[in-house]
Design a protein around this nucleic acid. Sequence first.
DNA 1: GTCTATATTGTGATAGAC
DNA 2: GTCTATCACAATATAGAC
Lengths: 202, 202
Amino acid sequence: MSEEHNTEQQIFEAAKKVFIRKGFDAARMQDIADEAGINKALLHYYFRSKEKLFDSIFQSILKKLVPNLEKITQDNVPFNEVINRFVRTYYGFVKENPFLPLFVINEINRNPEKIVQSFLSERLPLKAFFDRVHQAIETGEIRPIDPREIILNILSLILFPIAARATMAGIIFQGIEDDYNQFLDHRIENIVKMINENLKTQ
Amino acid sequence: MSEEHNTEQQIFEAAKKVFIRKGFDAARMQDIADEAGINKALLHYYFRSKEKLFDSIFQSILKKLVPNLEKITQDNVPFNEVINRFVRTYYGFVKENPFLPLFVINEINRNPEKIVQSFLSERLPLKAFFDRVHQAIETGEIRPIDPREIILNILSLILFPIAARATMAGIIFQGIEDDYNQFLDHRIENIVKMINENLKTQ
DNA sequence: GTCTATATTGTGATAGAC
DNA sequence: GTCTATCACAATATAGAC
């Protein structure tokens, strides 16, 4: 009873792990079967094809990567504190899920329609943040700026160093990833400062 | 005579185009043959294998993407002008070569040793920039900061929006790429400002 | 050097026994 | 539901004629 065997769920989790690490093209059905501890034929029994298996996984991953800013904006904190929370919680998340950013970027590149499907139907969790920015501009808390620019700057500064880890660690740290990790942790402080300074009025 | 046929060079250029656009895994030898206007067998005649053909191309591409900061730092201009030139010329380059960043990131991920080969032998073009930063710190022109942090911030702000074009345009511009391009062009101004403000003393 | 034809290998998918 | 064995196809690589 407590040991629900549930093969379908087992496959799902295994596939998630393999797809995220290798991407759709490089992922092998054999890898997924091995990871799940079963054989290839069962994959096709539960999910008809590799593509179908992938699709069932992708949407949930994309949602996890788009920052959920509703919680962060709902408390009535000053705007620079909104930025502070945004940067720190989002960095904490991608640090724990370092393969997600590049995975999502590549898969959307491979098939751009995938993103439309999921974001046309429901409301983006970015709406709350955009509203909060406009409010901060009206009250003179920050200078006038397109909210999308703030989002793009923060995501760039956080996601790029993770997505391009091997490249950047190779170029500026001779490939020593431990040093690079420490460097990134320490740098978060400065990102918050940089973003907030850029938003100051006058 | 003036019409040097030179099949090898023709293959090389075709392969470069196809590899950059599709990546190593997704690139097909047939695609390259078509692009070069010859057949598959000739590819193997000139370059023994797909891997060998790829390797002969990759190093030159990597070098092009690592910013060459020697020219920019050699004139005796104030440091904020160094930043200004760096950001604008580098953005101009990747705008003309939008597939390079993600291509390099993915291929180094696939095979991290590739980067070591090329950068252990010769001196990085970043050295001149690092020296210029240290000089600017000593003269009090900018605040004390790790030069690698400046590089990483600039590359993040410029490369990420290009590498993740489909994703970001999809999330914040409903996939309308023309609007996204204009948005990026206009944003460069603010990147220069943001980086320079962050480097101010006090 | 350049081509056509074919060998070889890898992988997604299916058939069929249990 | 789960397995083994096999199909079908795609893609790299090679043989051999010209």
